[in-house]
Amino acid sequence: MAGIRLDHLKKSFGAFTAVQDLDLDVTDGEFLVLLGPSGCGKTTTLNCIAGLETPSAGRILFDGRDVTSDPPHSRNIAMVFQSALLYPHMTAAANIEASLRRSDLAPEERRRRIDDAVSMLEIGDLLDKLPSEMSGGQRQRVATAKAIVRQPTAFLLDEPLSALDAALRMTLRAEIVNLQKRLGSTTVFVTHDQVEAMTMGDRIAVMNGGRLEQIGTPSEIYERPRSLFVAGFVGSPPMNLIRGEVADGVFAAGELRVPLAAAPGPVTLGVRPQHLHVRAEGGLPCAIFALERLGRETVLIVEDRARNRLRLLVEAEFEGRVGDPLDVAPDPARCLLFDDASGLIHAPAN
């Protein structure tokens, strides 16, 4: 096991820069999620860590050792690819064994590791099957077994769950985290799904346009997003972002007024749906646009007179019909303010 450090990593393909000047530390035993929309450079970063891509500049260090120019297998990493890629013409057993072909382990040790992995992932009855004869979840388990037999320095996972259905994704999410904690192995997990990121990661690194936007624990990312991008990307339902202006200690946007102690100027107000409340009167006048009943709670989507939409979380029993008028108001103590250029400028103290 090892810590991974990216030092001024840069990767460009021709004129296109996929990753620019990325500094990142993954501590030993940590589960780090690389989160971002497609094309943000997260997979390229993972490929650089794996050695599948050579960085255009910068260094990659495993436990302080420079591995920037080492080929993948000598870095002793294990990788699970998108939709759990396996060799299509090999059985599960052959696929798992292929992981150890370059190791100089004794045959008994090999046998033992494979048996351990097989029993840990409960795939004993799949060993003679070809990937085409397995379900998506079974392939995922075999790919994971293939990864862990190597007892690698680091696990690298590239959107391994993206091709699976929602229920299976949820089961495997927990299984992967459980396995990672039991093995205590350094893990880098790439995803574009912020729910996956929030539920699985010890820390999340949010990337956008080849840059690192923010790195922190899930609650840090959620409570104090450092930029508008992170604020909008993390959280479901997403944070409400309202453009307006601060003057004389009051945020004003259209008919909305929120008392906030901040420096005057144009800003964007961010407020999570659970911190936006329905008022009898005195708030922002809106009409119900849609109701999404989730059982435990209801997402209320409203539209103000300027046709801006806002989301708020209300109790499951909330009564209302599309078109009903109501007033909404944010909890001033839970509002965030963002500047377009410098990001977060005001956050509630906690």
Binding site: N47, A50, G51, L52, P71, P72, H73, S74, I77, A78, M79, F81, L85, L86, Y87, P88, H89, A98, S99, R101, R102
Partner: peptide, 25 residues
């Protein structure tokens, strides 16, 4: 499918990838 990346992680050389992975596949 993009089996080359898998093969590189498993330590197959380019030629081995062609002979042992791609041709059988």
């Amino acid at each position: 499918p993009p089996v080359e990346r898998l093969a590189r992680v498993d330590g197959y050389s380019r030629l081995e990838t062609l002979v042992f992975i791609v041709i059988p596949l």
